[in-house]
């Protein structure tokens, strides 16, 4: 038990530092594409610590207080149900008690808990952001579910560890074995990471910063910290599912950074979809590829 708790703390620390590093890179890279110099690499850490060092925070009652807590708890819980490494006792969290379907649903718990806090704060812009987020979710989840369902039915298991274990050589990686599923899932991946063109939820100009409109100080600090950790959880999930998993932390970082770089390129280059455009897009191209893959699978069987 102590080992598990220690491992959980390790996972939190690892994802936090990885996330801060990656997003530091993201900001510099973005700045370069804007032809700017950009902030120092650890600017995100500084921002985060500064937010925790604010002297006060706005409050709208106990539910507002609990929102960021649920958000962060949802993130960390989903993190603990993702195995980070394969063939290792380390960084497994509680993944043996859960599975992929559980994880997909766990990932929604946090945002919905936070949505309650946004609602109770009484900012209509925030609620608008929440609605956009939930609407966008329709578009993201459907192709994603289709792609992981292809994976699950292809591997005959819904356990993340077992899907990861089955990919023992490069040609067995699921991105090679199920290329259509991988491509479909990449669309959802970019959307779930909140990059352009699917970043309408937090669009500062259009909805006054989206769900986070009313959060400040320590609350914003928690939200910022969980955001990078959540992104890392998704990255690691994709590494587990499609890139053959990782046997140690360095391989994990290398693979996840490759994915992160893809996310960065898409996010930096493309402009933003409107909500309904995002959903319509996701329900067209990725869904058609996914359905095609399913049909091919079952005709070839």
């Amino acid at each position: 038990m102590l080992f598990t708790i220690f491992n959980s703390l390790l996972a939190v620390l690892l994802t936090y530092s990885m996330g801060m590093l990656y997003y530091g890179f993201y900001r510099i890279g973005n700045a370069r594409i804007h032809r700017r110099v950009g902030p120092p690499l650890w600017q995100n850490v500084i921002d985060n610590i500064k937010l925790f060092a604010k002297r006060e925070a706005p409050g709208h009652g106990i539910m507002f207080h609990l929102g960021p807590v649920i958000m962060t708890a949802g993130t960390i819980t989903s993190m603990l149900f993702v195995p980070f490494l394969k063939d290792s006792a380390w960084l497994q969290g509680f993944s043996s008690y859960g599975n992929l379907i559980l994880l997909i649903y766990l990932m929604v718990v946090g945002p919905l808990g936070n949505a309650l806090a946004v609602g109770v704060s009484g900012v209509p812009f925030g609620v608008m952001g929440v609605t956009r987020g939930l609407t966008r979710l329709i578009g993201l989840e459907v192709p994603f579910f289709l792609s992981v369902a292809l994976l699950m039915s292809g591997s005959g298991t819904i356990s993340i560890s077992e899907i990861m274990m089955a990919q023992d050589s490069f040609s067995n990686w699921n991105m090679m074995a199920h290329p259509a599923a991988f491509i479909v899932s990449l669309f959802s991946f970019v959307g779930m990471m909140g990059a352009s063109p699917f970043d309408v939820v937090g669009a500062p100009v259009e909805v006054y910063s989206g769900p986070q409109a009313e959060f400040g100080g320590k609350y914003l600090g928690f939200l910022a910290a969980q955001r990078v950790m959540f992104s890392m959880v998704k990255l690691i999930l994709w590494v587990d599912l499609f890139l053959g998993g990782a046997t140690n932390v360095f391989i994990l970082m290398a693979k996840s950074f490759a994915l992160f770089f893809f996310y960065f390129i898409v996010g930096a280059a493309f402009p933003r979809f409107k909500t309904e455009q995002a959903v319509d897009f996701m329900l067209k191209l990725p869904l058609i590829i996914g359905i095609g893959a399913v049909l091919v699978r079952f005709w070839s069987l």
Binding site: I33, H34, V37, I265, A269, F270, I288
Partner: peptide, 25 residues
């Protein structure tokens, strides 16, 4: 369904700045 190839490629061409020195003073 029409796929806007030029729209995709044109946007990606902005990545070339990643390898150019920034214009910041």
């Amino acid at each position: 369904m029409k796929i806007d190839i030029k729209g995709i490629w044109g946007a990606l061409s902005s990545l070339k700045y990643l390898f150019q020195p920034p214009g910041t003073l």
